[in-house]
Design a protein around this nucleic acid. Structure first.
Length: 256
DNA sequence: ATCCGGGTCC
DNA sequence: GGACCTGGAT
């Protein structure tokens, strides 16, 4: 996504050798990342290809409607998807999978229904906050909302209570098909373990690594992020990562 | 019995 | 840095 280049990002880790990017690398950048682990094709594409070959298409987001995707994006904050599914099923059964219904329902009722997703009081507030925003700004039309230019909409989403950078990007990408990277905990952990970023890297640093090298279509971001989450769950786990069996294991430095 | 999630707000 | 919170995995 080219337009993101105008955003004020923090120090951009040099992910690719300048010989490949054609860019000048900064002289004496921070001691963050070494250069990419391989020669030849752009490394991020190799990561992508390795994961896609291994796992195949992920068909994300697992939501039936755009609004359901938004609801899922909020409910899954720091929560496993299995716990979110129950909550969404409850909302559907109760006929609450629409912005108007969420606005109307009493908070205590909403809290009961989404209890399984954790932080249920916070998340009930967040769902209502989003629906009020949608009502006020776009007449409850997600279609109209997503017609807004990516950067403009992203800023507006970030102004909603309960929508931080990851949730905003999830909504943009998976509900709106806007070409942005979702840089979640799995993504950051994977890049850190592979030496692309340091501990101090922030959300925008991680996002930018992907966006600056992307072909610019939402499909690539969609598939890539979903593949990374899959990898994070199966191999790049917090405890006991399974680097030997991991499709990305060969990109690790010796002895890591 | 502890850990940990497809984070965000204060 | 602390609070918010559940339920499956380890």
């Amino acid at each position: 996504m080219r337009s993101a280049a105008k955003t004020a990002f923090g120090p951009s880790p040099r992910a690719l050798p300048s010989a490949l990017t054609g860019r000048k690398t900064r002289a004496g950048g921070p001691s963050l990342p070494r250069t990419a682990p391989t020669d030849g094709a752009p490394p991020l594409d190799e990561y992508y290809n390795s994961l896609f070959t291994r796992f195949g298409p992920q068909h994300w987001w697992p939501g039936k409607t755009k609004f359901e995707v938004v609801v899922g994006a909020i409910l899954t904050q720091n929560t496993s998807w299995a716990n979110v599914e129950r909550a969404i099923t409850n909302l559907r059964t109760a006929g609450l999978l629409s912005p108007a219904a969420i606005e109307r329902v009493p908070s205590t009722r909403l809290e009961e229904l989404i209890r399984s997703s954790g932080y249920f009081r916070q998340k009930a507030r967040k769902l209502k906050a989003f629906c009020q925003f949608l009502d006020r700004e776009y007449g409850r039309s997600l279609r109209r909302m997503f017609e807004t230019p990516t950067i403009v909409l992203r800023d507006k989403l970030l102004g909603i209570f309960g929508v931080g950078p990851e949730t905003a990007d999830s909504i943009l990408l998976y509900a709106g098909e806007h070409p942005v990277m979702v840089a979640d905990g799995y993504t950051k952990r994977l890049l850190a373990r592979h030496g692309w970023i340091g501990e101090k890297a922030g959300y925008e640093d991680v996002r930018w690594i992907f966006e600056r090298h992307s072909p610019g279509n939402s499909r690539w971001f969609n598939e890539f992020h979903a593949l990374i989450v899959n990898t994070g769950k199966s191999f790049c786990r917090k405890q006991k990562p399974l680097c030997q069996a991991c499709p990305l294991g060969r990109y690790l430095e010796e002895g890591r």
